[in-house]
Amino acid sequence: MSATAMSLRNGWRGLAFIAIPVMAITIFLFYPAALSIIGTLVHPKDGGGYTFSLQSYVFFFTDGYSLANLARTLWTTVVTLILLIAVTLPIALYMRFTKGPLATVIQALALFPMFVPGIIICYALIRYMGPNGWLQSLLSLVGFHHYASPHLTPWGPVIGLMWDGMPLTLLILISGLSNISNASIEAARDVGAGRLRILVSIITPEITHSLLIVSALNFLGIFGQALMPFMLGPTNPEMMGPFMLRTFSSVRDPLQASTQATITFLICSLAGVAYVRSIARRPQEDRK
């Protein structure tokens, strides 16, 4: 058998393998998503036929209430992302360069949230950081009486989402850090580089890729969150997740809800593009 025929046969076999997942994604994801996006642009006319209209988008972008919700979503996403990296990066660095029982305990603690369902975290956080909760009681024991609970303020969902996002962030950062060879760090040390210099010049460039992935994945996860914002967040402005949910089920306005969803999707797809480009570029760089 010739080499071309062989590779052709392998090609078909490969396609057969991916056919089922691709079909599943097409049928259950792309098709309904496309239907609802098209539904925001093309409306049935009275007496048959269809008409193209951007009316629902015009409403969204001229409606102060909707825009405030979008702004709050962006704020929550960016603030959570920054805090998440600020908290997990030192832990990841510590775990990369330290071995021993303490590092294992810290790792277990940091990965623990992965095994707790979100709704349970919400109720637990309300009892812990809520008004007259444990945190307030503990603080007043040591003489601090000015505790203002973040529950039902914009910081409520930030704390909940950090809790939720920590394990994944940490795992990705650790895997990024493990790619840095000890040899390059020792080489830098030999020529007299200090700790800070090693962090800035050796470690940071090596993990920008991981940071990009972490940011993109968390952006996607946080932006569309519905549970944490409505359990822990303020009544108003809402984040896009609860806003969409409420518009769909309580206001019973599927058109406006799918418009909000499409806008959310477009913003998230920017993060998606960044993520895909980041993984696609990586193998090419490695090959060089």
């Binding site: 309300i126 009892r127 809520g130 039902l152 359990m231 822990l232 009544t235």
Partner: peptide, 11 residues
Amino acid sequence: EYTSGNTASIQ
């Protein structure tokens, strides 16, 4: 501020 549901009010 408004609570996020019946149970949250009781909490």
